[in-house]
Design a protein around this nucleic acid. Sequence first.
DNA 1: GCGTTTTATGGTAGCGCTGTCATTATTCTT
DNA 2: AAGAATAATGACAGCGCTACCATAAAACGC
Lengths: 341, 341
Amino acid sequence: MSRKRNAHRSPDMPTLVDVARLAGVSEITASRVVRAQGPIADATRARVLNAIEKLGYIPNRAAGSLASAGSTLMSVLLPSLSNIVFPDVLRGIHTALTETAFQPVIGVTDYDPLIEERILVSFLAWQPAAVILAGLHHTPTARRHLEHGRFRVAELMDIDGDPVDIAVGMSHRQAGYDTGQHLIQRGYRRFGYAGHSVVFDDRATARYEGLRASLQEAGLSLVAEHRHPGPSSTMAGRDSLEILLATEPGLDVVVFPNDDMAMGGIFHCMHTGITVREQLGIFGFNGLDIGQAMSMPLSTILSKRFLIGKTAAEKLLESRERPLEKTIINTGFDIIEGATA
Amino acid sequence: MSRKRNAHRSPDMPTLVDVARLAGVSEITASRVVRAQGPIADATRARVLNAIEKLGYIPNRAAGSLASAGSTLMSVLLPSLSNIVFPDVLRGIHTALTETAFQPVIGVTDYDPLIEERILVSFLAWQPAAVILAGLHHTPTARRHLEHGRFRVAELMDIDGDPVDIAVGMSHRQAGYDTGQHLIQRGYRRFGYAGHSVVFDDRATARYEGLRASLQEAGLSLVAEHRHPGPSSTMAGRDSLEILLATEPGLDVVVFPNDDMAMGGIFHCMHTGITVREQLGIFGFNGLDIGQAMSMPLSTILSKRFLIGKTAAEKLLESRERPLEKTIINTGFDIIEGATA
DNA sequence: GCGTTTTATGGTAGCGCTGTCATTATTCTT
DNA sequence: AAGAATAATGACAGCGCTACCATAAAACGC
């Protein structure tokens, strides 16, 4: 009665052999039906499918992956999921991957390159078909693995740098620069910056530097800045603006690293009776739904997160082999005029 | 020179054999070092670790999983990532899993039980050690797989029902009920409800029903309700409130299914000059940061998303075997008084 | 000091699947 | 009608690792 299986196997978890036997075909034929690969007679396919259904067979991907030296996994390494940006990217990836055999496997790095490296290595152990990560900055070890691996690589969000394979995103430096230009053109002169602990967020830093560069070109400079210790949040934006204005009451515009913090800034103004735009301009980044739902929509920059994720995944699917040429795709950004700056 | 490996193998991707050879030990000893399992002499461990480092060896988890009939993956199936609730849950899971060998693998179901079933099956193909999903409601096929599998199962968010193994969450019906009680006690009588397309979101439905039950007990009822077609968003909340008030101007409080929509409600009031709380109470659900950052903090219910994720993952790690007794853990909720209702 | 336990290591046989190469019908050429 | 191409199937080895059992050496007990 009992099969000569190893004792550690589950009792009667059906395998391809069982399917093949029940369908009266060879193992390999059953395998071909499962993978929809190679020519199979309709009648045969039907019998195999039937057997699969009857047994409740679920293919063992570990075995498949081992035998074929490759998997249908796509490793996705994101800095954070609290920051709405990355769920949006992820939705884009998901969208591109539905109807394909690929599955995303997600890891969260907390903006820490060392954690990124650790998770990357543990993901590589599953022989993914592709790896998607944020930014162009990784540890040397991580970079080495990315360069030598037999998988496609997409680096998202930022394009200011040298990618391993594909980069999809926008120039954050340019976004910061354009922010400055836009605000100067609107007549603002006394600039403040209310940021957050920026140790790891390279994109925010790049925007900050772009902003400073544009100010400098116009003979201006940041009159005051404050960085909230700890991560970005609406509350952090509110507190930061308060501190900033206490230090330097004469500011006429404050730039925030993102919409969450900018919303906090707006709330501070509402609370203290500061007239937004007239007395103080507020400028964010991302173009979140909530900022646009206010009666006075937030002035900000729309980053195309969903598009970035979708484009990257689609590009990766185009070929399993890494092309000789590196690809950089600029998804751009839009300035949203809004009513706050 | 060339190894007698299959041609389809990558050139010289090192395996355990290579490590063992270089370290001068047997394959199995090297394996034990990698897995930190069984007694190993310090000198031997050092030699093996050295060889691993030198070769840049990355263990092949597909092979490991196949040989040991089990993996260190934990499948996580969430309805959405746009809804901040689930990233929070995920952070909790991540927190519990750091420092363990387990890795979460995330799938997004879009609140659709059929997609959930499909993703579940594809995840089971990797022999996960545990499966985490949202809610207690699944397709019959999914439920069957969950019941018969050799893995732990945690069903999150809701506890009103019969779990497969572990349930961690809160009673959404109770939350809705308590919302009603709380608002009645504060003197509100003419209730409105501004929801969203609710086809799949069982939790929102449960809260809605709890609310109605408490109103009924008090001899009251929902004077008006409106459901925004499509998913929940701040803009949806704003539009819904407008429509609701056009239909029924006499409302004195409106309950929203979540904070995002409630914020939209607030914005509508701000825009049209309605005095929140005095003229119209606004009540949300979730207790998001942004709602609390307003000078008039949102009245809402704090759901403990992070705790739910963390608790679930911790419980799952306690034992690899499914216990005879099902476990239900109620993480509860807190009413946040706020200033809007 | 001789069994007994503990510590440290190794040999071997698969885990379930797919790549490679054959083999046998079946259809198409000219 | 004979050869060539194509469609449909199968045999078998082996992917890289770990469970299982065995062995040898060191430590322990009284």
